[in-house]
């Protein structure tokens, strides 16, 4: 059932920029339009690109912010989240935790 929502009205998760827009709602309390504008601006793409998996696959691969089919050597998981924090200019809790432990 949730898949019906994902296809009918969801942003697309990691296939697109859904996770990034969600981060802006979670870290800055942004409403949807503001969050989309913010992410589009940071990624230097249009609003419609944010839900386009073809465009976003390239953008994600280039920025190394996590992709569905990760290439060898690219940033993944926690590493990719370090880059997401940088690109979106936000604090991500688990990355801050590493910093607080003196690991960054």
């Amino acid at each position: 059932m949730a898949v019906s929502h994902a296809i009918a009205s969801g942003m697309g998760g990691m296939r697109t920029a859904g996770d990034l827009v969600a981060r802006m709602q979670m870290t800055r309390g942004m409403k949807i339009q503001e969050a989309k504008n913010y992410v589009a601006d940071k990624l230097n793409v249009s609003i419609s690109d944010l839900t386009d998996p073809v465009v976003m696959t390239e953008v994600r691969e280039e920025l190394e912010i996590g992709s569905l089919n990760p290439l060898p050597g690219c940033l993944k998981g926690l590493e990719a989240k370090m880059r997401i924090a940088e690109v979106l200019d936000i604090d991500i809790n688990c990355i801050r935790r590493l910093r607080n432990k003196g690991l960054l």
Partner: peptide, 14 residues
């Protein structure tokens, strides 16, 4: 199956 217009998608949390 019907869907939102492009550009009107929203965040889906599970």
């Amino acid at each position: 199956f019907v869907s939102t217009e492009p550009g009107k998608e929203v965040v889906l949390s599970y």
